[in-house]
Design a protein around this nucleic acid. Structure first.
Length: 425
RNA sequence: GGAGAGAUGGCUGAGUGGUCGAAAGCGGCGGUUUGCUAAACCGUUGUAGGCGUUAAACCCUACCUCGGGUUCGAAUCCCGAUCUCUCCGCCA
C-alpha cells in the first residue's frame, strides 16, 4: 500500500512512477479528490461528536440533582442524528479510498527503467566461460528418464499435466539440493530457518499483495478460504503482521523451504516440456526485514547470495534487472537470476529478488521501533528465491552431463548425497 | 464435530451504563540518593486519524479481540464472528 501522505504531497511524482509501470495515473486524481472530501467530512463528523460528548456530563449532573434534562437530551439527540448522517458519508468515502489504495502497486525505484518484459537489461553475465561440449548435450528430461530420476507419465496419472513424480536418485537429489541451500543460507549467510504453513488465509495473502483482484494463479480451498502457497514469500511477510517490534529488532533474516503451487493459468503449452514449468515445485526462499535506509544494499547482498548458490553448483548464470512494467505488484525493484541450460539452449529463471520497500509492511501493519519509546516505523521487506529447484535440476543435469549418460555431481553438493560423485543408471 | 468458560494497555490484573485511555502492581524510560551495583524514593511511559510545526507541544476524534445493535451516553447490556482454554468424540 502506498502512503496517502506521499500521494498528497507529491502527486506528480507518484503519477510518473505509476506511468512507468504502465498503470493508469488517473486513479491518483480520483484518489486525491476522495481524500480531500473524506478529510473535510471527517473533521465535520468529529466536531459533531465532540459537541455531543460535552453534553454527556451535563445530563448526568442534571439527572443526579433531580433536575429536568429533557432539553439537553433533545439537543444531544439532534447532534446524534447529524453525526450519523455524516458518519455514513465518511464511511463510504473511506471504503472507496481504501479500495483504490489497495489496488495501486508499489512505485518503482528511480533506478528502474520504464518498459515491459522485453526491456529487461542484463547487468551481470556469468564471469566464466560456459562449458564447451564435445558432444550434443541432451535435454534434461531425457537424462532424467534414462537415469530413472523423474517419472513424468506417472506424475500426470497422479495429478494431471504439470505434475511430476521424483523417484530414486531424482527424489534424493531434490532433497539434497534443499538441504544444501538451507545449510548455505543458515550457516554461511546468517538466516534463521523457519517452517511455515503451506496454506494461508485471505488476510495474509492480502497483506503480501498476492490478492489484488482475481487470483487465478493460486490454488484455493473454498471450503476454508485458504490459499496454497505460490511461493513462501507471503508466509514470511506475515510472520510479523500486526506486530510492533520493539526495540531495534532489525535486520531479521529468514529462510524457508516450501513446496510452491502455481496454476499457471493462461500459460498452457508455453515452455512446458520437462521441468521448465510445473504446477508444484520445491523452493528455498530467503527473506529480510530491514531498516528503510539499508534496503537497496540488502537487495544487492541477497542477489549475491543467490548467485553464490549457483556458483557452488557450477552453473552459468546471468542477472537481469527487470523493467518497471515487469516487476511484481509489491516490488519497487527486482533482479531475476537465470541459469543456462545447454541441453535445451535456454536461459531459465531460477530466482527473483525484490525490494518491496514499505509496501507490504503498510498492508500488513508491520512496524518496528529503533529503541524503546521511539516512534514506530515501517520496515522494508525483501524476498529472493534461493533458489527454485526444478529449473536448477534441469540446468544441473544438462550442464554436468557426460557423454556416457552419467551426470557429475558438483563438489559442494556431494556431502548432501553421502559423498556420491556421479549420477548413474 | 458436541458442551462449557473466557478475551481489558508491553505483562499481570481491577472495573459501578455517565466526568474511564481506563485502578493497582510489574516492566520500560528519566531523575534523586549511592564509592560501584542493588534497593528505596520521585517523575514519566499506548496506538492511529485529523489539524499544526523546521521539529515539537497544544487541541479534537477513535480504539478495553473484531463486527453489528440498544441508549442522549457502552469496557460495562444484547446479538454475531474469531481466537484461546477445559471436557467429550475422532485421529497422524
Amino acid at each position: 500500500m502506498l502512503d496517502i501522505r506521499l500521494i498528497r504531497a507529491e502527486p506528480e511524482k507518484v503519477k510518473e512512477a505509476l506511468a512507468k509501470r504502465r498503470e493508469d495515473p488517473a486513479l491518483i486524481d480520483e484518489l486525491l479528490s476522495i481524500d480531500e472530501e473524506r478529510r473535510k467530512r471527517q473533521t465535520e463528523m468529529e466536531s459533531l461528536r465532540a459537541e455531543q460528548n460535552k453534553l454527556g456530563p451535563q445530563i448526568a449532573v442534571a439527572k443526579k440533582s433531580g433536575g429536568d434534562a429533557s432539553e439537553i437530551l433533545e439537543r444531544s439527540s439532534a447532534l446524534k442524528a447529524q453525526f450519523q448522517q455524516t458518519e455514513e458519508i465518511v464511511r463510504s468515502l473511506d471504503a472507496r479510498q481504501e479500495a483504490i489504495l489497495f489496488k495501486l502497486p508499489n512505485l518503482p525505484h528511480d533506478t528502474v527503467q520504464a518498459g515491459g518484459e522485453e526491456d529487461a537489461t542484463i547487468i551481470r553475465p556469468w564471469p566464466y566461460d560456459p562449458r564447451v561440449f564435445g558432444f550434443t548435450p541432451k535435454p534434461h528430461w531425457e537424462i532424467a528418464e534414462s537415469l530413472r530420476m523423474i517419472d513424468f507419465e506417472r506424475g500426470v496419472k497422479l495429478s494431471g499435466g504439470g505434475f511430476v513424480l521424483y523417484s530414486g536418485l531424482g527424489a534424493r537429489l531434490e532433497r539434497a539440493l534443499i538441504n544444501f541451500m538451507l545449510d548455505l543460507h543458515t550457516l554461511k549467510h546468517g538466516y534463521r530457518e523457519v517452517g511455515v504453513p503451506y496454506v494461508l488465509n485471505r488476510d495474509s495473502m492480502t497483506a503480501s499483495g498476492h490478492i489484488v483482484k482475481f487470483t487465478p494463479e493460486m490454488y484455493h480451498d473454498s471450503e476454508d478460504d485458504l490459499f496454497l502457497l505460490p511461493t513462501a514469500e507471503p508466509a514470511l511477510v506475515n510472520i510479523h503482521r500486526d506486530e510492533l517490534m520493539d526495540p531495534n529488532p532489525l535486520p531479521l533474516k529468514y529462510v524457508a523451504y516450501t513446496p510452491c503451487w502455481r496454476r499457471e493459468a493462461g500459460a498452457a503449452g508455453k515452455d512446458t516440456r520437462g521441468l521448465q514449468r510445473i504446477h508444484q515445485f520445491d523452493k528455498v526462499e530467503i527473506f529480510r526485514f530491514v531498516a528503510p535506509e539499508s534496503s537497496y544494499e540488502a537487495l544487492e547482498e541477497m542477489t549475491h547470495e543467490v548467485c553464490k548458490t549457483l556458483e557452488l553448483l557450477q552453473l552459468p548464470y546471468r542477472i537481469l534487472q527487470l523493467a518497471a512494467g515487469d516487476i511484481s505488484f509489491a516490488s519497487a525493484k527486482t533482479y531475476d537470476v537465470e541459469v543456462w541450460s545447454p541441453g535445451i539452449g535456454k536461459w531459465l529463471e531460477v530466482s527473483s529478488a525484490s525490494n518491496c520497500t514499505d509496501f507490504q509492511a503498510r498492508r500488513g501493519n508491520i512496524r518496528f521501533r529503533r529503541e524503546t519509546n521511539a516512534k514506530p516505523e515501517f520496515p522494508h521487506l525483501l524476498n529472493a528465491s534461493g533458489t527454485a529447484l526444478p529449473r536448477v535440476v534441469a540446468a544441473l543435469l544438462e550442464t554436468h552431463q557426460q557423454e556416457d549418460g552419467s551426470v557429475t555431481i558438483p563438489e559442494a553438493l556431494r556431502p548432501h548425497l553421502g559423498g556420491l560423485e556421479k549420477l548413474t543408471a
